[in-house]
């Protein structure tokens, strides 16, 4: 059974909101007793995905929740936007692929940094990405 503890929302509409997402995720990760390396990985992944939400999704939100599987504690973050969506997901998840002039590491890199990564998107339907990192 999974019990969830108090989701916290951050609206992502401007540059400084990406910083706010990072700061909230750091606080929650410390509270959930993730190791320093795991905190760093999760905050970095959140930073990449929050920027994607802003730049590619045209803004949206992040919801941070502490989850408990009964055996271990983790942090789940959902990034959602109502932007154009991703038409070719395999391509978007390829290292080095970008439509925005970046390094093309945001999506693929973020996936490597977390334990669970789910993406729900289609052209014209927005994007919803859920990541989870468990305390070891």
């Amino acid at each position: 059974m999974t019990t969830d503890v108090g989701p916290q929302m951050v609206t992502i509409a401007a540059d400084e909101d990406v910083v706010r997402v990072r700061q909230l995720v750091r606080i929650v990760a410390v509270g959930a007793k993730l190791s320093l390396v795991d905190q760093t990985k999760l905050v970095t992944a959140a930073s990449e995905l929050a920027r994607n939400t802003l730049v590619y999704g045209g803004g949206g939100g992040a919801e941070v929740t502490v989850v408990d599987s009964g055996r271990r504690t983790g942090i789940r973050i959902v990034f959602a936007d109502d932007g154009p969506g991703i038409a070719d997901l395999d391509l978007a998840l390829t290292d080095g692929y970008t439509t925005g002039g970046g390094l093309g590491l945001g999506l693929s890199g973020a996936r490597r940094l977390v334990d669970e990564f789910e993406i729900d998107t289609a052209a014209g339907r927005g994007t919803r990405i859920t990541i989870t990192k468990w305390a070891r």
Binding site: V37, Q39, T40, K41, T44, E48, L105, G109, R112, L113
Partner: peptide
């Protein structure tokens, strides 16, 4: 650079 940052950077692919 902090050790945790270095570890994360490499895993990110940078």
């Amino acid at each position: 650079m902090r050790p945790a940052v270095a570890i994360t950077l490499v895993e990110l692919g940078l």
